[in-house]
Amino acid sequence: MIDARGYSCPMPVVMVQKAVKGKEPNKLEVLVDNQCSVENVTRYARNSGYQVEVSDHEGDYKLVLRK
């Protein structure tokens, strides 16, 4: 689980990149607190071959990345 709430762009994407590159986990959960980060992380994840599901998490956003 990556908690990227409070971090401004591009930090959430950098954090996801670090978790994904070379390790290729089958599932990864990411918390972000703004729509712009939702879009950026989603775009990066899709380009890296993941499917992305977005849901509400206590007023913030939870992204579930799956291979």
Binding site: P10, V14, R43, N47
Partner: peptide
């Protein structure tokens, strides 16, 4: 800044 940054870091050309 984001334009050039994202292109270099993430190959994202949006």
């Amino acid at each position: 800044v984001g334009g050039i940054r994202d292109a270099v870091m993430f190959r994202d050309f949006r």
